[in-house]
Lab assay of single mutants.
Amino acid sequence: MFYPNSPQTSPQLTQIPYGQQYAMMQRQIQQPYHPFATTEPQARLYPYHYQGPIQQEQGGFITQQSTAASPQYVQMRVTPVDQSIMSGYPNQTANGSSSSSFNYNIHPQQQQQQQQQQQQLRHHAMPVGSVPLQDDRYRKQLIVNYLAPDVTSTDLHELFSRFGELDGARIIYDKQTNMSKGYGFVYFCHAEDAKEAVERMSGYEFHGKWLKVGYSTNPLNIVPSNSSPYVHAGSRGAAG
C-alpha cells in the first residue's frame, strides 16, 4: 500500500523548493479562506456584503464582478436614472436638479381664491374633541361614552347635575331594538360647569363602566337656548 506522503511516492527534499517541504498533501497545500485577509477597505468593513468592485458596462447597466450573493443577503441591482424623465418638472436647472418651490404660472386672482378656499376649509374642519370658538353652545354640550346598558337618562342627569344647572341629558337608544347604544349627551347651562365635568368625570366608574367624557361637536345635538329642557323620564321611549 502506498500513501500520498510515503517515501516511495514523495520526491527528495532537495528537489522541493524551500517553504513547501512540509506541504505535501493536497489539504495542506490548499490555503484556508480568510474573509478579512484583503487589501480593499470595503471588504474589511463589510465582509458579507462586499463582492468586489463595481464596473460600468456598455448599455448603462451596473453589474458586479463577483458571483451571486448568499441567500441570506439580498443584493440590489441599481440602474442609472434617465434624465429625460425629470425634464417635465418646473424650475429645473441645466444640471438636472430642481428647486423646492414650484411655479405653475397661476393667475394671481386664482391663487388668492385657492388660498381663501383653504382658509375656509381649515375654519370649518374641526378635529374630534375640539371646541370651536365662534359658538358658545359647543362648550356646553358633552358626550358621555361607555355607558352601561342599564343607565337611563334620569341617572345621567343626576350624575352630572352636581356640577351645575343642566339644560338636559339623554341616552341614545336603538330604534329597532330599543336598547341603549352605550353613549349619551349632557347639556349644561354654563360653559364653566361643562369644563369642570369634563375634567372630573373622564375615567369615572359608573355602573361598572369607566366613562369617557368630552365635548360634543355635532351641531345636530345642540340644544337651542330658547327651547324647553328635555324630559328626564326613566322610560326608554321618552328618553330616546
Rank of each mutant, 00 (worst) to 15 (best):
F206M: 15
Q75K: 09
G60C: 06
A148I: 06
P80H: 08
Y204F: 08
D82T: 15
G182W: 10
G208F: 10
D82H: 06
G59S: 08
Q64V: 12
C189K: 00
A194V: 02
S10Y: 01
I172S: 00
G237C: 08
T217Q: 06
H124T: 04
Y187C: 03
Q116E: 02
S216A: 05
Q110L: 07
P224H: 10
V198M: 12
Q12Y: 02
P41T: 09
P53L: 06
T152Y: 03
A69K: 11
A194R: 05
V131C: 10
E40Q: 07
Y146L: 10
Q114I: 08
A68P: 03
V213R: 07
Q65C: 07
D193H: 02
W210Y: 03
T177A: 04
I62V: 12
Y46F: 12
A194P: 10
Q26Y: 15
Y183T: 07
S228I: 14
V128A: 07
F36L: 12
S97M: 00
Y204Q: 11
V128T: 12
A23D: 06
E192I: 05
R44W: 15
P149V: 14
Q21S: 08
G237D: 10
L121D: 00
I222G: 00
P229D: 13
D136W: 00
Y33V: 13
N5Y: 11
I106V: 10
P35F: 10
L13W: 15
Q119T: 02
P224F: 04
Q110R: 04
R44K: 06
D135K: 00
Q112V: 08
Q112E: 06
G237A: 15
I222H: 02
E158D: 04
Q51A: 09
A43H: 01
L166H: 02
L220M: 03
V223Y: 13
G129V: 10
T14I: 15
G237V: 04
V198S: 05
E40D: 05
E165L: 09
H207E: 00
T152D: 09
Q116T: 10
M126Q: 11
E192D: 01
S84H: 13
S84N: 07
W210P: 01
E196S: 11
G214Q: 00
S227I: 05
A125L: 07
P32Q: 09
S10F: 05
H34G: 14
Q120A: 02
I29A: 00
Y146F: 10
N178D: 14
H123I: 05
V81M: 00
V144A: 02
P17H: 07
Y183S: 06
P17W: 15
G182R: 13
Q58P: 14
M86P: 02
K140T: 13
V231L: 04
M25H: 13
K212W: 03
P11K: 00
N218K: 00
V128M: 15
L147W: 15
L13F: 06
G214V: 05
Q112K: 11
I16G: 01
K181A: 02
P90A: 12
L147E: 07
Q117A: 03
R137P: 12
Y3K: 08
F160Y: 03
V81S: 03
R27Q: 13
H34M: 15
N226H: 03
S235V: 08
R139T: 01
R170H: 05
T38Q: 13
D150I: 02
V198G: 05
Q12S: 04
Q15D: 15
T63F: 12
R162H: 07
E40Y: 01
G52R: 09
V144P: 11
A43R: 08
I171A: 01
N5V: 12
K140A: 10
G182S: 11
A23N: 02
T38E: 15
Y46G: 07
T217W: 01
D136F: 00
I143H: 07
R170V: 01
K195D: 09
H232S: 02
I29Q: 02
M24I: 09
M24W: 00
R77L: 14
S180G: 03
I171S: 03
Q31R: 06
S99G: 02
